[in-house]
Design a protein around this nucleic acid. Sequence first.
DNA 1: GAGTTTGAAACT
DNA 2: CAGTTTCAAACTC
Length: 343
Amino acid sequence: MDGAENGVQLAHDASQEPAFIANEEFNQNSPKKKRRRFEHAGETESCKRCNCKKSKCLKLYCECFAAGVYCIEPCSCQECFNKPIHEDTVLATRKQIESRNPLAFAPKVIRSSDSVPELGEESSKTPASARHKRGCNCKKSSCLKKYCECYQGGVGCSISCRCEGCKNAFGRKDGSFIGTEAELDEEEAEACEKSVAEKHQQKIEIQKNEEQRLDSALPTTPLRLSRQMVSLPFSSKNKPPRSSVFSIGGSSSGLYTSQKLGKPNILRPESKFERHSQTVPEDEMPEILQGDRSPSTGVKTASPNSKRVCPPNSDFGPSPGRRTGRKLILQSIPSFPSLTPQH
DNA sequence: GAGTTTGAAACT
DNA sequence: CAGTTTCAAACTC
Ligand SMILES: [Zn+2]
Ligand SMILES: [Zn+2]
Ligand SMILES: [Zn+2]
Ligand SMILES: [Zn+2]
Ligand SMILES: [Zn+2]
Ligand SMILES: [Zn+2]
């Protein structure tokens, strides 16, 4: 192996205790509570996770694994190895897959602005992390259904997509004008108490295993702002008007964290969402880059300046990235894949 | 609920 | 690289 023993797996965890229940009222009032996943109401818990049967949750087939989170109870997987008790295996596998494709785990769809990750010339300039893996390769779905990762990710298809007959409601490959923007049923697993509990447990487990610093900024962190609701161009099924939810992924966690740092991370519940985003430049400092700060300092007390945005989605949330009708989107953080320090 | 369709991931 | 197989989700009924 190389000298860099410290691979520094995933960056920091994004778990955040202080939920943003503040706005919960909003949501709560909404008679409409969408909890999909295993929709079919009737299902015991509405929030189930993977159902892997043969992958042992150690391949990208597993959404949990792919998202960098351990499987938890709501998962219906079998022979699951994606658990803290198999951390070594998980990390090893991760590493291997990562070696094959450095962007494998990395971030999901980067939905910054309506601009889809353009691979064209941009790619040459882009730090390689801004982009995202190749676009979709849909052949029969016309990128109209969630079979399409682009659509599922709430982004339009880019030139890099190889889709045929693209009709992605978020934007077609050719950039055909998008009459009406599409809106995915966005929903996050917040209401899933069970899940929350699990998460906690998971977190605890992790901590128990090794001290990990829970920070924010996971490589895969598409900022998500509230965005106006727009009608879906194609009324699939039914798109009942839903009050714009401000639910900003409250709890999240489960990301693999393997940074050994005996540091009592002190979470500082700071509501940063209070301010209106209109003129919010980039307050969020790329904390991600802090990776090389000298440990000598020891514990870095919560930087007064560091206002980290809590990555809401850690549950492999297909966060539809909400983008306000306007362009006040915060540029997605230059989150680097996570590791790959070696060269 | 079972069964089909789909395209990414994995494999050759 | 491309072709095939495997896989689990999205979808349909
Ligand atoms: Zn799984
Ligand atoms: Zn799982
Ligand atoms: Zn599992
Ligand atoms: Zn597509
Ligand atoms: Zn696409
Ligand atoms: Zn497309």
